[in-house]
Design a protein around this nucleic acid. Structure first.
Lengths: 198, 198
DNA sequence: TTATTTTTGTACCGATTGTTACAGTAATGA
DNA sequence: TCATTACTGTAACAATCGGTACAAAAATAA
């Protein structure tokens, strides 16, 4: 007695995934419901029946981006290998995202935070949650580095994580805005040196 | 024989300044020509006769933001006082901008870079130019710090400037997206420690 | 004054905005 | 089969989009 009536002939998550790329490349205000329909292949009826509104769909999209993103980031930061290698890999992954990905350029979460956090508290909540989780993971990595001596002491894990966090987000923004690969590599150098430098 | 005909009864720069705040708080796609007209008090005739198009007005706005911004930033970084004080003041200024300003929150240049650089090469050019100038100024400051010994050596001025640059932009983005003042202060700590820490 | 030039406000343009209404279709449980 | 339920596609909605046309207004140079 659970499901009666015609079942939908598309997969919810696949549609969210397609809509994600549309929002990602055009922005929230920069794309229309027509764009979303033609990209997903859905009619307006199905789209609104399933997601309610453009705003709700965007919410589902950003939530989905957050979930897959934080998993990927945590995997990179908690992988085997030295702390230095892991942080290096993290930045290298971001570099690929910003310069060589088949996905739209940049970080959707940053875009969402800047374009919509002010107008949509739920977006601000997701972004804050993501940042908090990422920062906590970074703190654990820094603690490990301090414990093993990979990071020469004198700084707290919180300070180190905060620095790495902000540098990472600046990295993403500058990559997207200027597409300057030389600068990107200088930032990677500067960031790694600031943590592991003699 | 220079100027004939009815002179406009508004000040060009003042209008750019008002339009700046409209674009700043709503984004390029998020604000309409109607918004711009009602905020500036201009009719559509005057607006289009003077600026040509929404895109052109936005360009003038971003250019204006760049010019006044880079001047302010350079003044902070080249003011008298120790290198440490100057960098501290720079971040403190950004903190005020993001949490206590009467202006719209955040950095218009970042917004412009993320929302429009991909679609408007002229926007990308302004952002790149601004970042390059800011970075050069930071490099000079770092060189001075290294020369005087305020910054304990082993790192190049370029690496130091790149780090400070990315951390600064991440700072702005996180402030705007999460409005988390505790995090902001941790980032300031972490960034300053990474440069001046023992 | 008069001819010229520019600005200004208003009306208007077709296109697009996000959203809804609804008839038609397709699956279900009884 | 049949009543019920849900999904799909199309048409349409008022509102708004960026931009233009144009006549009235206001200033100048002569």
């Amino acid at each position: 007695m659970s499901k009666r009536g015609r079942p939908r002939d598309f997969d919810y998550t696949s549609i969210v995934d397609v809509a994600m790329k549309t929002f990602w490349s055009k922005g929230y205000n920069g794309c229309s419901t027509h764009d979303l329909c033609s990209d997903t292949g859905l009619g307006k009826g199905s789209l609104y029946n399933t997601f309610g509104s453009k705003q709700d769909l965007y919410l589902a999209v950003v939530e989905h981006y957050h979930e897959t993103g934080i998993r990927e980031q945590q995997a990179l930061l908690e992988s085997p290998g030295s702390v230095k290698e892991r942080l290096q890999n993290f930045l290298a992954w971001a570099l690929v995202e910003d310069f060589e990905s088949t996905n739209p350029t940049g970080c959707l979460l940053i875009n969402a935070g800047l374009e919509r956090a002010k107008d949509d508290p739920k977006i601000e909540e997701i972004v804050s949650r993501h940042v908090e989780l990422l920062k906590q993971t970074m703190e654990k990595v820094m603690e490990e580095g301090l414990r093993t001596g990979e990071i020469s002491k004198k700084r707290s894990a919180v300070d180190l994580a905060s620095l790495f966090l902000s540098s990472y987000y600046g990295f993403r923004v500058l990559n997207t805005s200027t597409q300057n690969r030389t600068l990107a590599e200088q930032i990677m150098n500067g960031t790694m040196e600031s943590i592991f430098g003699a």
